[in-house]
Design a protein around this nucleic acid. Structure first.
Length: 645
DNA sequence: TTAGGGTTAG
């Protein structure tokens, strides 16, 4: 939340302006002392009409005209001026105009409170409201609505409750807008009993009120409660459907989100651009390329503007679903691009191992006058890291402070550690961490540990492992990696200790899960999954493949399995990693030569990686797989990651 | 003669 006082900006010094002897508005000139009511109201109408058409840079000019006309105390004119400043985000100017108004009425207070809210100065808005009440100016329904908005965004629950009490006293509590803001206030503050009470007292069937409730519930992860409100509403409009879809997406319920979207279509409710952005986000997570492509053509056919948000969502969808060419095509067709557009494109290219193109994109962005932000540098440094561009990476890292005035944060340092470690300069990466004097996070240490494992530097690996065990923020993925490193060097006790630590910390290992889209439907597989209706055929395919793979020289790399179990059991456990099941299902349910696209939630293990390379070779298929870190394009026995991931 | 609705990416 932003708070505190507004920053100062230049304001036309009203007191220094002399009143002219003629009053000029637009092209008309009136003689002085012509105070007839009709002329005044004509002048006012003209100025108000000018204000309504005014651009940001014209504010001082038109304000000067208002002062010259002697209209700077006219509440109607000042009201329009304040609204204009607020809409154009000139809140400093607005507050100075307000301060020069001798006796502001409730309209002017409300206009400035609204201005503070839309600029994010919630505390200022609440203070101004208090000032108004202290001046014995009675709040009306508009003032109360505005200050409740401020209380909601500013999470000022106590102040909000006081305003609620005032609304009750003033007999305004049944006003629909006020109720809506009260729901928003209580919902944002997690006071669902109060929010629900206000909602239940409202007339049934109000889609807007239901949307507010759904959004509040979803923000707190209360998906079932949100769903309950949604299902209980008979007539749902586009925004309400969208809020439900978005709520599910934000809570990781992608399949349910797409189900709701399909239901929306069955009920003939038209999606708008916001709906489509939410659906695209679900597609991105699931790797649902077919549906994503459908959304893309829907946008084209229905002339929906491909603005930066829609375009960015499309780029993310294509690149995260494994179709980087599709992402590039969307990017090149976009008429307007901002930093986020470039960030998405750079990220996509980097994830697909196209580091040089990612760097070119970064340069093109700067050539076009767009300033890279902190996120841009994370993406570009990642590209350098995946492409082994160590020197260039360093150059870009240093340019952050030297040329762009951006202070590197822990994620940037993490990128440099990854950059060095990946290329085998592990000791250098370690001393870089020491030099930064910043407590390393689990991502940084994880990158280093991963490199220790790949470059077989177990001595340093152990030192890093100790640091990781003592690291507060390590997640299940990092612990799994650590446990893997111990298991790989036969240190079963340590491996077990890490597993126990993970349990203690309440971060059990996330179960491996792979998704594949076939005929517009997402199929989900877990380790050794037997839920799929085609399970017999899937496992038969797996058995069929095993001897062929062995003939091709595949031998299971059993050390990647964590538990200290017998060789045959290890082999068996490896054989049913979720990605293998997804691939076998893809093989039996698509035509020969069809590219298979898999999305996996964890990092692919060594063994599956070698096996998939061979499957791609034997079956003459392209297999594109997204794991937790990047994309792997398997083709003809090789992988685009160059066996480093 | 002054004003008000809920849903979007990174």
């Amino acid at each position: 939340m932003q708070s505190g006082l507004c920053h100062s900006s230049t304001l036309l010094a009203a007191n220094n302006m002399s009143c002219s002897t003629t009053v000029a508005i637009g092209n008309s000139v009136f003689p002085p002392n012509s105070n007839s009511k009709s002329r005044n109201s004509q002048n006012r109408r003209e100025v108000i009409s000018l204000l309504q058409k005014c651009k940001h840079y014209q504010i001082p000019q038109i304000h000067a005209k208002i002062i010259r006309n002697g209209q700077d105390q006219d509440p109607f004119v000042v009201f329009e001026l304040l609204r204009l400043c607020s809409n154009l985000k000139s809140i400093d100017y607005a507050s100075k105009v307000f301060r020069r108004t001798q006796s502001p009425n409730v309209y002017l207070y409300t206009a400035l409170i609204d201005g503070f809210v839309s600029s994010g100065y919630y505390l200022d808005a609440i203070r101004l409201y208090c000032q108004m009440v202290n001046e014995f100016i009675f709040p009306d329904k508009y003032a109360i609505t505005s200050v409740l908005k401020a209380c909601g965004f500013g999470l000022a629950l106590e102040e909000g409750r006081e305003v609620h009490a005032q609304a009750l006293k003033l007999g305004l509590s049944s006003n629909r807008s006020i109720r809506m803001k009260l729901m928003g206030l209580y919902g944002k503050c997690g006071e669902f009993e109060s929010a629900r009470q206000v909602f239940d007292e409202m007339p049934e069937g109000d889609a807007v009120a239901a949307t507010v409730m759904i959004t509040c519930y979803a923000e707190y992860g209360l998906v079932e409660e949100a769903s309950g409100v949604f299902d209980g509403l008979r007539e749902k409009d586009t925004v309400c459907w969208t809020a439900m879809i978005d709520g599910l997406v934000k809570n990781g319920e992608m399949n349910r989100a797409l189900e709701v979207f399909r239901d929306m279509q069955r009920k003939n409710v038209w999606p708008n651009e916001v709906t489509l952005v939410c659906v695209l986000s679900a597609c991105s997570h699931l790797g649902a390329l077919e549906l994503g492509r459908w959304v893309c053509s829907y946008i084209d056919k229905n002339n929906i503007e491909c603005n930066c948000i829609v375009g960015g969502a499309l780029i993310n969808m294509y690149s995260r679903c494994g179709d980087i060419d599709g992402a590039v095509e969307v990017f090149s067709r976009m008429k307007k691009r901002d930093v986020s557009t470039y960030n998405s494109m750079i990220e996509g290219l980097a994830m697909h191992g196209k580091s040089t193109m990612a760097i070119e994109m970064f340069r093109e962005m700067m050539k076009r006058g767009l300033k890279p932000n902190s996120i841009t540098f994370v993406k570009v440094l990642n590209a350098c890291s995946h492409g082994g561009l160590v020197e260039l990476g360093f150059e870009i890292f240093h340019s952050m402070t030297n040329s762009h005035g951006i202070q590197p944060q822990i994620e940037h340092y993490g990128c440099v550690v990854d950059l060095l470690a990946r290329s085998g300069r592990i000791e250098e990466a370690y001393s870089f961490i020491e030099r930064t004097k910043m407590a390393p996070d689990h991502i940084m240490l994880g990158a280093l540990l991963s490199a220790c494992k790949i470059h077989r530097n177990l001595e340093l690996g152990e030192r890093v492992a100790e640091m990781l065990v003592n690291c507060d923020d390590a997640d299940s993925g990092t612990f799994a990696l650590l446990s893997n490193v111990y298991a790989a060097s036969g240190k079963w006790k340590e491996a077990a200790r890490v597993r126990a630590l993970t349990k203690e910390a309440g971060t059990p290992k996330e179960p491996g899960c792979s998704l594949i889209e076939v005929n517009n439907e997402i199929h989900e597989f877990l380790l050794g999954d037997i839920r799929h209706p085609q399970k017999e055929n899937i496992y038969r395919k797996l058995e069929e493949l095993n001897p062929v793979l062995k003939r091709e020289g595949y031998s299971p790399a059993t050390e990647v399995v964590l538990h200290d179990i017998g060789e045959r059991q290890k082999e068996w456990a490896l054989a049913i990693h979720s990605e293998r099941l997804a691939i076998c299902y893809g093989l039996i349910s698509t035509k020969p030569c069809t590219t298979l696209r898999i999305v996996k939630n964890l990092r692919v293990c060594n063994d599956c990686h070698s096996m998939i390379k061979l499957i791609a070779k034997i079956t003459k298929r392209k297999i594109i797989m997204r794991d937790r870190h990047r994309f792997h394009h398997f083709e003809n026995g090789a992988c685009s990651c160059g066996d480093y991931w």
